[in-house]
């Protein structure tokens, strides 16, 4: 049994899926931990990535164009949500919910239906073995993680981190907090949308319900990673996100292994999250539960 679980965890499929989803978790973590912005746009922009992939690929265009456009699409959704908060003065949580709701209609219209299959068409992962797919996913993820780490190690990245915890310092130093929030959410949603595009290309289909429950599973992944790694630097923060995503994916694969109904997965992740939050509170013994960035959740 344990051997089987070990093989399952190290299987290229689980690792590939975990890494693809870790990009979305990283995007969500940037808004949540660095900007202290619980951005619920996540579920919509993840689906948008898949929708863009289906639009481009079914037209016979290159899957890499789909990936590039998903970055642009994600940025636009992030900018839209941030503008709702910064300029229309709508509450952070509500601004995400509004964009998410609008995106539902936009995604349905763009895709001309609730789902679209492009299984037999050329995607970024066509004609590759499982190991080949994993290699490609690792390259994409490493590229994305390096870019994010580079950004966060600049002064701009430092200001982004400070913006979530003490916005007054930012304003008193003559920086525009709105610029930081808008650009931060643009980066975060670009990553999420990119992840959605990769995810759809991996499975060969896109569905408007793909993002359902992604907030909870991303938060679960983040908290698992934070409990294991206790990040204090940018690099350890990214490592926490990746490890958390892989462990969450492993939990899904156990559900698969014990033949649970797929519709029960989200319920199980929800229960795991509740347990984690309670355990984290008691295990911290008065110390900080979140060691890097702001504790919104």
């Amino acid at each position: 049994m344990l051997d089987a679980l070990g093989v399952l965890f190290l299987s290229p499929n689980i690792l590939s899926q975990g890494l693809i989803l870790s990009l979305a978790v990283l995007g969500f973590s940037i808004s949540l931990r660095l900007l202290a912005y619980a951005d619920l746009t996540l579920e919509g922009s993840f689906v948008l990535g898949g929708v863009i992939a289906s639009m481009i690929i079914t037209k016979g265009m290159s899957p890499y164009i789909a990936l590039s456009l998903s970055l642009v699409g994600g940025m636009l959704t992030g900018i839209f949500t941030a503008c709702l908060h910064c300029y229309a003065k709508i509450n952070k949580l509500l601004s995400g919910i509004i964009t998410l709701t609008i995106l539902y209609s936009v995604n349905l219209r763009l895709q001309n239906g609730s789902n679209s299959s492009f299984y037999n068409l050329t995607t970024a992962f066509s004609d590759l073995t499982d190991i080949g797919i994993l290699t490609k996913v690792v390259v994409f993820s490493l590229l994305a993680f390096s870019i994010i780490a580079t950004i966060l190690y600049t002064r701009y990245g430092l200001l982004l981190r400070a913006c979530g915890e003490n916005v007054k310092i930012i304003q008193r130093s003559g920086h525009n907090k709105n610029v930081l929030i808008v650009s931060g959410l643009a980066i975060s949603n670009a990553l999420i949308c990119f992840s959605g595009s990769l995810f759809s290309q991996y499975f060969g289909f896109s569905d408007v319900s793909l993002g359902n429950g992604l907030i909870i599973s991303s938060l679960t992944a983040l908290i698992i990673g934070e409990i294991i790694i206790r990040p204090r630097t940018v690099i350890t923060f990214i490592c926490a996100v990746v490890i958390g995503s892989l462990v969450t994916q492993f939990i899904y694969s156990i559900c698969l292994y014990v033949n649970l109904n797929p519709s029960d997965y989200k319920g199980i992740v929800g229960v795991v999250l509740i347990v984690l939050i309670i355990v984290r509170r008691y295990a911290s013994k008065g110390k900080d539960t979140v060691t890097f960035g702001s504790e919104v959740f």
Partner: peptide, 15 residues
């Protein structure tokens, strides 16, 4: 953060 006060945007892109 304090030393980057009122700095130009391009300066903020440095490590």
């Amino acid at each position: 953060i304090a030393l980057s006060a009122f700095s130009k945007f391009k300066n903020n892109l440095s490590f």
